[in-house]
Design a protein around this nucleic acid. Structure first.
Lengths: 187, 187
DNA sequence: CTATATTAGTTGCAAATGAAACTAAAAATC
DNA sequence: GATTTTTAGTTTCATTTGCAACTAATATAG
């Protein structure tokens, strides 16, 4: 018990966060003593893409609890709803682009929302391949209920940062994001 | 500093893990929200959890290209490999905890790695419920090939930031992550 | 010692996923 | 104007996922 408190103190002193701190029982001390010295091993908790994935996943979960729990919406359904709440009358393709979903996900999410009466859609007269998606009264009501809730959670999550830190986080994320996209493009 | 150690002690006594410990001083996020600030619409591209999800997804894809493309490993298999590469002889449960996978994912990923000859495992003599997982020569060879590749991608992605910016990003992420975990805890 | 509970890990099953095939409409080519 | 190509959106199918039920081993309670 007391030993764990001491480990925690060491953690604080070592400059690791509680999330990037390697767990004592699975971490070889000689590796941690000089992270740059051993190229043969990767320390998962200090590997940026891993940290980011875990972080993002936890933020997503915190938000998803809202729309999943109270409104029985999937992540995709929520995104479609969010897209249409912001701009009514989009086609499926536009929804997909706007909400970073692929067309299959969009199609299925829209089908479920339609089935549950949250949206309607009809053909665009000028191009009958396009379906113009619109929120129903019910859909808009749900949207209007959810928005303040997710907003509040976003605010809460970011409340630990100052105005300036929040901007800085966004700036750094954007820069890193660009580099990741470059890599993705080149395979 | 010492105060945090004391909090940690209380945490241990109360049966909470370091991740599930609720912070008593914070208030309910929905109460915290300012009703007057609630615009009727949500702008998805400027909604932090959405930005983060897209960002993380793109970084994951940039890394996954490596182990998926060249080594035909799933994300889960890669994580198990990474855990064992770092510390051999873990049980499935330890792998799961270390790599943030659930036990089903771990079990299935390990089964595939076993089938492909990247790991072996045998019962722990002192507790025959535990399986000690170890990399085979082949598994370690794959691990040793992948590590420099993913390291290089991580470096490239972060090369757009200065040393100091990288630290700052990690610091901000950690702070925000903690808040997100608090929310998850409440449900 | 027996009965019950807990823990490690696997498996069965229903639902979700993603890639590719498919339908239908419009555009482009000849 | 007929033919081919492209675009929007859906469906099919094989794979993956997540949850809960399950087996087996150990720990605990009576």
């Amino acid at each position: 018990m007391f030993q764990q408190a001491l480990i925690y103190l060491q953690m604080q002193l070592s400059g690791y966060s509680r999330y990037t701190m390697p767990k004592p029982q699975v971490t070889d001390p000689e590796i941690m003593s000089d992270p740059t010295a051993n190229d043969a091993r990767l320390c998962l908790p200090s590997f940026f893409p891993y940290q980011l994935a875990v972080f993002s996943d936890d933020v997503s979960k915190a938000i998803a609890q809202l729309y999943r729990g109270r409104y029985k919406l999937s992540r995709q359904e929520w995104r479609v709803l969010a897209a249409l709440g912001e701009r009514d009358g989009l086609s499926a393709k536009e929804i997909a682009e706007y909400s970073t979903l692929d067309k299959t996900q969009t199609s299925r999410a829209a089908a479920r929302l339609l089935h549950n009466g949250l949206i309607i859609r009809d053909e665009d007269d000028s191009d009958r391949r396009h379906l113009r998606h619109k929120l129903t009264g019910k859909g808009r009501a749900v949207y209007r209920e959810i928005v303040p809730l997710v907003r509040a959670r976003e605010s809460y999550i970011l409340s630990t940062l100052s105005e300036q830190e929040t901007k800085e986080l966004a700036r750094l994320m954007t820069k890193v994001h660009q580099k990741a996209l470059e890599l993705q493009q080149w395979g």
